[in-house]
């Protein structure tokens, strides 16, 4: 979601459940659930700090800032939290939702780091193993101040649990079709977009269509599958809460097969199973 070049193939592999690491050939027969997916863990930045800092701030740990991993982070255009412009804060929140969304769409076992659902911060300390203080302690006040992100995380988890097609014993195999803004997936170095359809019939589930725009500008996607009105828009991280996640009674059918996905945004569509 940082928009790095040449990452589309890697993103497909992780969404699929990492069959490169856990091959499901006859010899190995790994399951998708043996792959644990996570964006953050106790080692490294919290989700919010991943989007707020490019430089770790570990001096309090007592090792001259030499400890802790080199996180693959992006500060969204401004280093740190104090004085961050509103558009940077908005982008960080959208990126947090993007990462949570992809985490809970991917096949495999998802792991969430406690507090990321309300944007816990450690002030840029990415290795507070010896900080028994407010650096490490979850600040539950943020549950209220970031209620929109908590709602999004809660609804994404519920969505995943309602759609067993996402999390399977085995890999998605022939049920997934990879696309780009058009029918064909664009694996080129400068591609910043990916879409996929996941057929749910084999799992007794709905069909899903996911569009990912990691580019800094809006991109028009075309849904190549079926009539536009069959698809309900569930998630669009380009929208503010509560429109970012519309629970099914409030989900709106598409009026066109063309859908403009906003800059650095993820869209999830659902086509209810027939019968």
């Amino acid at each position: 979601m940082r928009g790095d070049p040449g990452m589309i193939g890697a993103m497909m592999q992780r969404l699929y459940g990492s069959s490169d690491l856990f091959p499901d050939d006859v010899v190995n027969a790994y399951h998708a659930y043996q792959s644990v997916n996570y964006v953050t863990s106790h080692d490294g930045f919290t989700l919010w700090d991943l989007l707020t800092y490019e430089t770790k701030r570990n001096t309090a740990n007592g090792h001259d800032n030499s400890d802790g991993p080199a996180d693959i982070s992006w500060n969204s255009g401004f280093e740190g939290e104090d004085g961050a412009p509103p558009d940077v804060i908005a982008l960080r929140k959208r990126q947090a939702k993007n990462l949570l969304c992809l985490l809970f769409l991917a096949n495999g076992t998802p792991m969430l780091r406690a507090g990321d659902e309300f944007l816990q911060t450690q002030g840029g300390n990415n290795n507070p193993y010896n900080q028994d203080n407010e650096t490490s302690w979850l600040d539950w006040n943020r549950l209220e101040s970031h209620a929109d992100v908590f709602r999004f995380a809660r609804l994404m988890i519920a969505f995943r649990k309602a759609h067993p097609s996402l999390c399977r014993s085995r890999f998605w195999r022939e049920d997934v079709r990879w696309h780009g803004t058009g029918p064909a997936v664009d694996l080129s170095d400068d591609s910043r977009s990916l879409a996929f359809s996941l057929s749910g019939a084999s799992q007794g589930d709905d069909d899903l269509y996911v569009m990912v725009n990691a580019y800094s500008e809006p991109l028009p996607f075309t849904i190549p599958d079926g009539a536009a009105s069959e698809w309900l828009r569930i998630v669009d991280t380009g929208c503010l809460s509560p429109d970012d996640f519309r629970e099914s009674p409030h989900a709106v059918p598409l009026t066109s097969a063309r859908y403009v996905v906003g800059p650095r945004s993820v869209v999830v569509l659902q086509r209810p199973r027939r019968g």
Partner: peptide
Amino acid sequence: EADTVVYELHVGAFTAHPSSGVKEERRG
């Protein structure tokens, strides 16, 4: 199975903060 969602937490850090709303003697 399909509804597995793992949540990684530290027993101490999870409720040590007064904002946890947990009774003081039970925090952390």
